[in-house]
Nucleic acid binder design. Structure first.
Lengths: 185, 185
DNA sequence: GAGCCGTATGCAACTAGTTGCATAAAGCCC
DNA sequence: GGGCTTTATGCAACTAGTTGCATACGGCTC
């Protein structure tokens, strides 16, 4: 159960409404724990009901109007508890690898195009991450306050770089008549 | 919907019963698409009902006795269709990165131990993969028939190596009083 | 002031994966 | 042959994530 804890973290960083949270997720926490606004609203409701967060405007129910939340001490305690406790590393679930295995049996038609598409997407994401690193974590204040956030970003960069490299290698190993000539290496 | 296609691939490689499939998953396809026997039985039922596979022993229902399946032409066609069609790369969902972000807000108590635990697990998995590579893909017949399967294994190796490296780096960046001295680098 | 668009909240139904447990046959052991 | 273990199949309930859509306020325009 990670989503409630992701939300508690985001709310501790800055009290927000549901839609604000959704937007902040899209450009930070969501990189490694994506969530739609529907999920977030549902979870905010649960967290409020369980006393982990509360609305800043305790008026009657006003649909369509902004409702901001902040974390209560109970919520912070719960997050601290969860941070320290362990679980197994998440199992890899990657349909693309499944497609390679399937292609080994039924043929590689269309596979190269799919690999190239993924390669382009991973390169684009890598470029985004590197740009974020350049602006948010400049070399002059490495090892500063936010080294944990930087470590998280480095994980994203490393993963995207890994996939880009592996895809390029794998494409090179496909018979050449199965790939287009549009790649640059 | 990847599980049915994973099962079709496995059955094309070798017709099997539900439990045999479960065991084969545990040491090959399951590395990147894990499935329990409950999931597999349920999916075998659906695949049989939809005419993609059939039981080799079309007797009446005998519970507790082995029931082997093979793929029908319809199943092979469906798998070929699926192999070529594309989807977006799967979003990363990694609770460990969430814990780092949370730790940045509520403190790093217990975090180092958690990172060390993951480091050990990833190193062990990496060693397993390298052993499989050594026995199943010896250097003398690289680029052979099974280059696709090898590419899949290389992905697993690369991912585990990445995580091991990133975890070691991240641990080194934690203040030293927050880690035990049991690591070896 | 009617209609439209953007912001915002939220419900309902569905799909996929997980967990716990029930059932049955077959072999072994005493 | 009565009970235990292993092999095997399978149901049911639950949890988490996804998809589609409904509702409501506020400002703008015509």
């Amino acid at each position: 159960m990670s989503l409630p804890h992701a939300i508690l973290t985001a709310l501790l960083e800055k009290p927000s409404s549901g839609l604000e949270l959704t937007r902040r997720f899209d450009k930070s926490i969501g990189f490694f724990w994506p969530a739609t606004h529907q999920q977030i609203y549902r979870e905010l409701g649960r967290l409020e009901a369980s006393g982990h967060i509360r609305a800043l405007q305790p008026d009657g129910p006003v649909r369509g109007q902004k409702k901001e939340y902040e974390v209560l001490p109970e919520g912070r305690a719960e997050l601290a508890r969860w941070t320290a406790d362990g679980d197994a590393p998440r199992a890899v679930r990657e349909p693309l690898l499944l497609r390679l295995r399937a292609a080994a049996v039924v043929g590689t038609d269309g596979l190269a195009a799919e690999l190239e598409r993924h390669l382009a997407l991973h390169r684009a994401q890598l470029a985004d991450y590197l740009e974020i690193e350049r602006t948010d974590f400049p070399a002059e204040n490495a090892d500063g306050e936010n080294r944990l956030q930087h470590a998280v970003l480095r994980a994203g960069i490393g993963l995207e770089a890994f996939w880009a490299e592996w895809l390029a290698e794998t494409l090179d190993a496909l018979p050449s008549d199965e790939r287009s000539s549009s790649r640059s290496g």
